[in-house]
């Protein structure tokens, strides 16, 4: 299909040094830096949607196990899944290939040190004040219907689960202590 000269010319193309610096510098920073402006706009909209849903979610039960407390804008997450968003319909374009971008602000209350791991998305913008640590969990929800974020401290751990409920057509979030 392509002649040898063309194939060799293609194969000789190497990534610019600038890219190397950008990628390896990104590794040192916990924040996302290379996203396009359009993604940022969508993220802002998603954040707004998430905040609206959080206000609606106030009033759900508190977590019975007090070793960890995970909350979103002051609302404690519990084993009972609560809706993260009711705006799936507004992401109808997402169903036709675009990613659904979820931005979940979490506040973790715990004394001591913890190990936070997510099976998808990114954890960023974490800050700590008066025993409370704020993180933002960003998810490009493009294929999976379940995402988990695990917080471990010594023998204690808790898992924040984000599950897409097909019946209700919305994302639900819960937190289970172990």
């Amino acid at each position: 299909m392509f002649n040898e000269k063309q194939t060799n010319a293609y194969k000789n193309i190497t990534a610019p040094m600038e890219l190397r610096e950008r990628v390896l510098n990104t590794e040192k920073q916990p924040t996302v830096s290379g996203k396009t402006s359009s993604l940022k706009v969508i993220r802002n909209i998603t954040t707004l949607a998430a905040c609206v849903c959080l206000i609606v979610a106030v009033g759900f039960g508190l977590n019975s196990n007090k070793s960890f407390t995970v909350s979103m804008n002051g609302t404690n997450l519990s084993q009972e899944a609560m809706p993260l968003s009711t705006a799936r319909a507004s992401y109808s374009v997402a169903a036709a290939n675009e990613k659904e971008l979820l931005e979940i602000p979490l506040e973790i209350t715990l004394s001591g040190e913890a190990d936070v791991t997510a099976n998808g998305g990114t954890i960023q913008n974490y800050s700590s004040e008066n025993g409370k640590t704020s993180v933002v969990w960003l998810i490009d929800a493009d294929c999976e219907e379940t995402y988990t974020l695990e917080i471990k401290s010594g023998k204690d751990s808790c898992t924040v689960m984000l599950i897409f409920n097909n019946a209700e057509n919305l994302w639900k979030i819960s937190c289970t202590n172990k």
């Binding site: 190497t14 890219l19 390896l24 913890a114 700590s128 993180v135």
Partner: peptide, 23 residues
């Protein structure tokens, strides 16, 4: 509370192996 570790892979080695092809 202090987050002591966010799980990461060794990006440098992966970059050296695959960056040209991906670019």
């Amino acid at each position: 509370m202090r987050i002591v570790r966010l799980r990461k892979n060794d990006i440098s080695a992966v970059y050296e192996l695959y960056s040209d092809m991906l670019y």
